[in-house]
Nucleic acid binder design. Structure first.
Lengths: 245, 245
DNA sequence: GAGTGGTCTAGACCACTAT
DNA sequence: TAGTGGTCTAGACCACTCT
């Protein structure tokens, strides 16, 4: 790497500006998940900064969960892996206590006119066509969560070309491989409601019994909305634990 | 402050050991919420450390939300203030949009034999006497959350001496002032259920309609369990938002 | 053994706050 | 103006990983 000047707002601290550059290297694809980031040494020479300043920038990005550092090995771009995050919420015991990815079964995949609420979330024009899916997640053939998924047609058209039977239990790797779309982060919004007849049928519970509803808007590294998803699961299996200070 | 050697496990990094000392100063009451922590300069002289190392220890404690630093003013022990945290969960609009502490109305306060589940949570002997309370939280006279509260009798006996009408809308300041018990952190556990007849009556909703149930175990700085609380609120007012990466 | 990140030093200079 | 924390330098030494 050659010496280059630090770009960005001159009024910001140097370590912030270096962090901004590296963050943009990720959002714009020059650094991909799993890639090695240049070492502290390389960076401090390339940008002519003292090692302490470089370290501070990297520490910041580690704190943001964008990078991870390994003593003696190097600094790497973290692979986001929150597809299983839904299942932080739901208790599920396997006989041997090991964790497993629940089965994902696509019940329906059609091209539909996107409802306006979802169009706003996905930031696509109202009335556009989009991909709509109904998907069931099961553990030992017991339905745990019913999902309703919407994808912008433009980015995900290729997804319609593969057989739903060939889609595995995780969608995000397929989005990456088939459509070149990387999911990096998401917002989740959680509430509870009484089960509709349709939800009750899918989850094999009584109509009107309490279900948890989790809306997720998944985004790329640059914040572009990619996927909207509404998940409904049996409240009696739901359990969220948090520490507050 | 005079020079003193760093105690603690010699194999740990120095900044960790300094952080441990300061953390213990808080848990053991030598530093109280709102107190000023000795300045970077004072600490680096007292422990004969370089300023960078002291800063690293303090940064760690800031990250833990134990301290807060103000440029030009100093470093201070943060005042924990999560009594309002329940109301991160519940939507409530005031006409003018300002946030207000919801009303807290104590409906019952009695001395009871503690149920064994709660005894285990509070780490007190099964069968001990404890303080039991029923409390309703309201906004504009509309009940939002019904609470069931248990306190260990030993620490909170003085709480029985004050009139329930004199207890304000926040309990934790009263615990501090009347019983000398400081709440520092808590664990919360969240699920949903169908409203019982009793819960429905308190919240003025239909029996069987979905309610959110939030269990909280509040603890002191040293981790001693202080208060167990179960809150139930209308699911239609409940809304939890989070970002995942 | 070469390269990596983790810890630590001993300062300098600056921006902010209080008085 | 004195004291505080925030930024930054220019190293040293160590522990860990890879080959």
């Amino acid at each position: 790497m050659n010496a280059q000047p630090l770009s960005g707002d001159q009024r910001l601290p140097i370590y912030q500006r270096l962090a901004d550059i590296l963050r943009r290297d990720v959002t714009e694809g020059r650094l991909r998940p799993g890639d090695r980031v240049p070492s502290d040494n390389e960076l401090s020479h390339a940008y002519e900064l003292s090692p302490g300043t470089v370290r501070k920038a990297l520490d910041l990005l580690v704190q943001e969960d964008l990078f991870e550092r390994f003593h003696g090995r190097g600094t790497f771009v973290r692979r986001p892996s929150f597809d299983a995050s839904l299942f932080r919420f739901f208790r599920f015991r396997t006989p041997d206590g090991t964790k497993s990815v629940p089965e994902g079964r696509i019940l329906r995949r059609t091209r539909e006119k996107v409802p306006s609420y979802i169009a706003r979330q996905l930031k696509i024009p109202e009335g556009d066509a989009a991909i709509s899916m109904s998907r069931l997640r099961l553990i030992d053939d017991v339905p745990i969560v019913a999902e309703e998924i919407w994808l912008p047609l433009q980015r995900f058209e290729a997804f319609l070309d593969i057989l739903t039977e060939d889609v595995g239990n995780l969608l995000y790797p397929v989005y990456d491989e088939v459509c070149g779309q990387l999911i990096a982060k998401a917002e989740e919004s959680l509430t509870a409601e009484a089960a509709s007849a349709e939800t009750a049928r899918l989850l094999r519970i009584e109509t009107g019994s309490p279900v948890m509803m989790i809306d997720r808007l998944a985004k790329g590294y640059d914040g572009t909305p990619m996927e909207w998803r509404r998940s409904r699961g049996r409240a009696d299996l739901f359990h969220y634990h948090t520490e507050i200070r």
